[in-house]
């Protein structure tokens, strides 16, 4: 199980990386390599050139903006996991990260790599979609922002051009005093890609009414899905009633569920409802336990 031969470059800037990608359409970016290398070992991927962006300084950073945490594309998952303000500002991501592979893969795997790979069951893309984040992609042609909604197109498929480099990822943060979040997933083994995963972040007012709500499900559909209708429907409500589950179930009932050998579509649909509901309840309970501003 040895990779087919390829060339290797380690550019020192994004501009140089983009140059290399433009010159050779079968060149691929490698950062952490935790998904690409197994594919190459099995010769299911055969890039002619690897463009190693892991050590480009401008791609490895974590920045606390006022309304977001912005992460460089080649930032290691483990570095983000250890980021001091993560638990307070992006609790949903803080909860999701331990589910990403295993410690040893998070030590090498990058935030941008997980997003660009776009596995339907991957945790980081789900959080990005749920929180309505975005990425920035640069190529020799342009430098643009792509909203998470427009980014994920299907299993292992994104709107990212093949010659583009994902330079940063923007996870919006909320400033509500009464905020709660929850992340759950089910897989055959802990650390495997999930059959279904669910993420929720909610904010309540002093009265316990929902003032902000973001719910997403992964694994069930070809790309992570934000439950927009349910989230909207729950605004102004109390979240702890039957209506919550109904709103979630109604939206999931209309989704196109993925078909693969690991779990039946019926399972994925049912469990998506169950987990989405559970994370909303858990997020709600957490928010409720917080004192209003």
């Amino acid at each position: 199980m040895k990779a087919a031969p390829f060339e290797y470059s380690r550019p020192s800037s994004v501009a140089e990386a983009c140059e290399l990608l433009t010159r050779d359409e079968d060149a691929r970016i490698i950062a952490g390599g935790q998904t690409l290398v197994p594919m190459m070992a099995m010769r299911l991927a055969r890039p002619t050139r690897l463009v190693d962006i892991a050590r480009i300084p401008e791609l490895a950073f974590i920045r606390d903006d006022s309304d977001a945490i912005v992460v460089g594309g080649a930032t290691r998952q483990a570095a983000l996991e250890r980021h001091a303000s993560l638990a307070a500002r992006l609790p949903l991501l803080a909860r999701a990260l331990p589910w990403v592979g295993h410690a040893a893969t998070r030590n090498r795997g990058t935030v941008g790599g997980s997003i660009a790979n776009a596995d339907p069951a991957a945790e980081i893309p789900l959080v990005l979609v749920t929180l309505d984040g975005s990425i920035r992609a640069r190529s020799t042609r342009d430098d643009k922002v792509i909203a998470a909604d427009d980014l994920f197109e299907g299993p292992m498929a994104t709107a990212l051009a093949l010659d583009a480099c994902l330079t940063e990822v923007r996870f919006p943060t909320w400033s509500h005093a009464r905020m709660g979040s929850a992340f759950q997933e089910i897989s055959a083994r802990h650390g495997d890609f999930a059959y279904v995963s669910a993420a929720a972040q909610v904010a309540l007012d002093g009265d316990g009414k929902c003032v902000a709500c973001a719910i997403g499900v992964g694994g069930a559909t070809a790309a992570p899905t934000r439950l927009k209708a349910a989230s909207a429907a729950l605004l102004g409500g109390r979240l702890d009633d039957a209506a919550t589950r109904e709103a979630i179930a109604a939206e999931i009932a209309a989704l196109d569920i993925m078909i693969d050998p690991h779990a039946s579509p019926a399972y994925r649909r049912r469990v998506a409802v169950t987990l989405a509901h559970r994370v909303v309840i858990a997020a709600h309970d957490e928010a409720l336990s917080r004192t209003p501003a």
Binding site: A3, Y8, R10, I30, G33, Q34, V37, P38, A41, L50, D52, A54, A78, A103, A104, T105, N107, R108
Partner: peptide
């Protein structure tokens, strides 16, 4: 261990 942290040696090319 790479810089002290566990990593899979099969998922890294030596050049990296």
């Amino acid at each position: 261990l790479i810089d002290g942290a566990p990593a899979r040696a099969c998922l890294l090319f030596a050049v990296q």
